[in-house]
Computed example of a mutant assay.
Amino acid sequence: MKVGYFADGPWSHKALELLVNEVEIAFIVPRFDTQDPVLKQWAEKLKVPYFPVEDVNSKDFIDWAKETEADLFVSMSFNQILKKEIINLPKYGFINCHAGALPFYRGRNPLNWVLINGESHFGITVHYVDEGIDTGDIISQKLYEITNVDDYASLLEKAVIECASLLLNAVSLIKASSVSAIVQSSIHPVGTYFGRRINGDELVDFSWGAQRFFNFVRAITSPGPGARCKGPNGELALLECRLIDSASSYIATEGEVVGKNDDGVVIKVGDSTVLLTKIADVRQQGLGEIKKPTFGIGTRLKGR
Rank of each mutant, 00 (worst) to 15 (best):
G288N: 07
T299S: 10
D150Q: 00
D60V: 08
F27N: 00
G298M: 11
A159N: 14
V171M: 12
A210G: 12
A227F: 11
N148D: 14
C229L: 10
S248M: 15
A99W: 10
V23Y: 13
A247R: 06
T147R: 02
I62H: 02
S140I: 02
R31I: 05
I244Q: 04
R300C: 05
V56A: 01
L238A: 11
S165L: 13
F61P: 00
Q80D: 02
A227W: 10
G132V: 04
Y5R: 00
W64F: 02
E69F: 09
I174H: 07
L236E: 12
A70C: 08
G195P: 14
D281P: 01
S222I: 14
N117G: 15
G255E: 14
P52D: 04
F206G: 03
N96Y: 04
N57Q: 07
A70P: 04
I95Y: 01
N109G: 07
W11N: 15
A181M: 08
E22S: 11
T34K: 14
A43F: 03
S177K: 14
Q184E: 13
T135M: 07
M1C: 13
E235C: 06
L275H: 10
W64Y: 00
L143F: 03
S154C: 04
F73D: 08
L243H: 09
F78C: 03
N148S: 12
I290Y: 09
S12I: 00
G296Y: 03
G209R: 13
A181E: 13
S177M: 10
T221H: 00
I86T: 04
A70I: 06
S58V: 02
D151K: 00
G234K: 01
F214R: 02
E22R: 06
A43W: 02
S140D: 07
V204Y: 11
L236N: 08
N169H: 12
